[in-house]
Amino acid sequence: MIVIIPACNEERTIRQVVENVWRQIGCPIVVIDDGSTDDTAIEAFRGGAIVISHGRQLGAWTAIQTGLLFARHHRIFPVVTLDGDGQHEVEDISLLLEVYRKTGAHVVIGSCPDRASWMRKGAWSFLRFLTGLPVIDLTSGFRLYSKEAIEILTSKEALLLDYQDIGVLLILAKRGLSIVEVPVRMYERKAGHSRVFSNWGTVIRYMIYSSIFGISKRSL
């Protein structure tokens, strides 16, 4: 197993997160530094992570995909993705792993719908309705991807996506991969903020693009 952490300007929390994973799980950790302008890369390195730096910002999803590419090159499966802001409980990685082993699902999503505001919940239900995806927490960054999922998600087809949300799930669902959700704990972000739900402009743009995307990719 390998843990992948996409990070952008998270120098205050990244080292702690990496060290926690080391201590509690003890598997290789890759931090994808997505065009940070602060010391995220150095802090992650000090924590003991393998650091891969994008020369420029490519977006949260592309950062995860770089990590998946790395895992695929080195044939390390499965992959668990985690946020670098301390939002996810590192202990719960074993929960994801356990569910993966028991169910044999291709993707396990650590889900925590309680964290969402009414606005985000509304957005999720709407997107669920549009896409027909049977997933409650559409935007969780806490996921486990199996070898099969990684092979599909590292294809060029998945390069035009921006977030690890409906686009990723739709590609997987289209290929008939099984997605299972497991409830996990999530904390308030210690640093940084959601890349989507930060201000009205991005939310509106996100909803418009997601709707168009969801409608175009719906299974017929």
Binding site: V30, I32, A41, F45, G48, A49, I50, V51, I52, S53, H54, G55, R56, L58, T62, Q65, T66, L69, F70, H73, K156, L159, L160
Partner: peptide, 23 residues
Amino acid sequence: LSKQEKEIKRLIQRIAILEKRDR
């Protein structure tokens, strides 16, 4: 343009992996 965006992203990913830093 979309095709080029994909190509550029994949190139940056490849370079980033090649230039990885670890212990």
